Amino acid sequence: MIKKIHIPSNLLKDKARHVNIYLPCSYEEEKREYPVLYMHDGQNVFHDKEAIGGVSLGLEEYLENNKLEVIVAAIYQNSEQRMNEYCPWPIGRYSKEIMGKDSDLGGEGGKYAEFIVKELKPYIDTTFRTLPNEAALAGISLGGLISLYSACMYPEIFRHIIVLSSAFFRNQEEIEKLVERSDLSSIKSFYGDCGTEEAGEDETLSKLFSASNQAVFELIKKKIHSARFCAIQGGGHTYSDFRKRVPELFTFL
């Protein structure tokens, strides 16, 4: 069952955000509490008809077929502000070297993370029967960057982090510094992955993308005991590829 809600915000530029809430089949039948998985790029989470590009993760079907006992909060992206909201800092030097151009985007990620922690999560926890201390956070590409940032800033809030094909390179220098100085001992599990063909036929760019992810994971594994990273052979940067990795989103259960 999907519930569509709008969350007012004093932190986001659009002053509100659409969120789709998946409730498990047993929610109406059993009066117990459930863990919550928060996800970015919400249009691409549940159904192809809503997805940007026409291919989603197909998560509602997956959850129903596997009878997983979890609430999922899919936060819609503001497409015009996505780069700003998912990058905690202005686009950095490493990104400019990889992409070959400058950018004046980025830097609003702190407010977006604060929106999740101070506006969205309290609403979810008071409206639905949740396990407030068992929140998980997952993201893809830039969603992986903002997920790791949020984990570092609010490690007492998010216990499980799942990031797929993370675009850490956009803020490579700053995210590495943040991980190094953060206490992540309260995080119970971390899963990250990266495809070997993230940039398609551009082998050089794919290797740089992979190196970016590996560098961050080398820091994470020193901080989180239960941390796992997978190199996906042949994996690309498309939702057709991400959909194959959907089971990894729920290994924390």
Rank of each mutant, 00 (worst) to 15 (best):
I162V: 15
R159V: 08
E134W: 00
K121R: 14
A136G: 11
K111I: 08
A138D: 04
G139I: 13
T126I: 13
I124A: 04
K121N: 09
G143N: 07
A138V: 12
E119R: 11
L137C: 04
I124S: 03
K118F: 02
K121G: 15
A135L: 08
H160R: 06
P132T: 10
E108T: 13
A151R: 00
F158V: 11
H160N: 11
E119C: 14
T126W: 02
L131G: 04
S150L: 06
S141R: 00
M153E: 14
N133Y: 10
E108N: 14
A135Q: 05
L120A: 14
M153H: 11
P155A: 12
L120P: 06
E119I: 12
A136C: 08
Y123V: 15
T126K: 13
P132G: 06
A113F: 02
I140P: 00
I140T: 11
P132F: 01
F115K: 04
G107C: 11
C152M: 07
Y154H: 12
D125M: 07
E156V: 14
T127C: 12
I124H: 01
T130P: 05
I116F: 03
G144Y: 01
C152N: 08
K121D: 05
P155W: 12
I161K: 04
G109E: 12
R159I: 11
S147R: 04
E108Q: 14
L148A: 11
T127F: 03
Y149E: 08
V163G: 02
A113L: 02
S150H: 04
G110P: 03
P122I: 14
V117T: 05
F128V: 14
R159D: 04
V163T: 12
Y149M: 07
G144L: 05
I162L: 06
R159C: 12
E108G: 09
Y123T: 14
L120N: 05
L145N: 05
E108C: 11
G107I: 11
T127N: 09
F158E: 09
T127W: 01
Y112L: 10
K118G: 07
F128R: 09
A138L: 08
L137A: 05
K111L: 15
P132C: 07
N133H: 06
A151P: 01
P122E: 03
I157G: 02
V117Y: 00
E119D: 09
G109T: 11
T130A: 06
H160A: 05
F115Y: 10
A135D: 13
I157V: 15
V117L: 06
P132V: 07
I161H: 00
H160D: 03
I140Q: 01
E114H: 09
Y154G: 12
G107Y: 10
E134M: 07
L164F: 15
L145H: 00
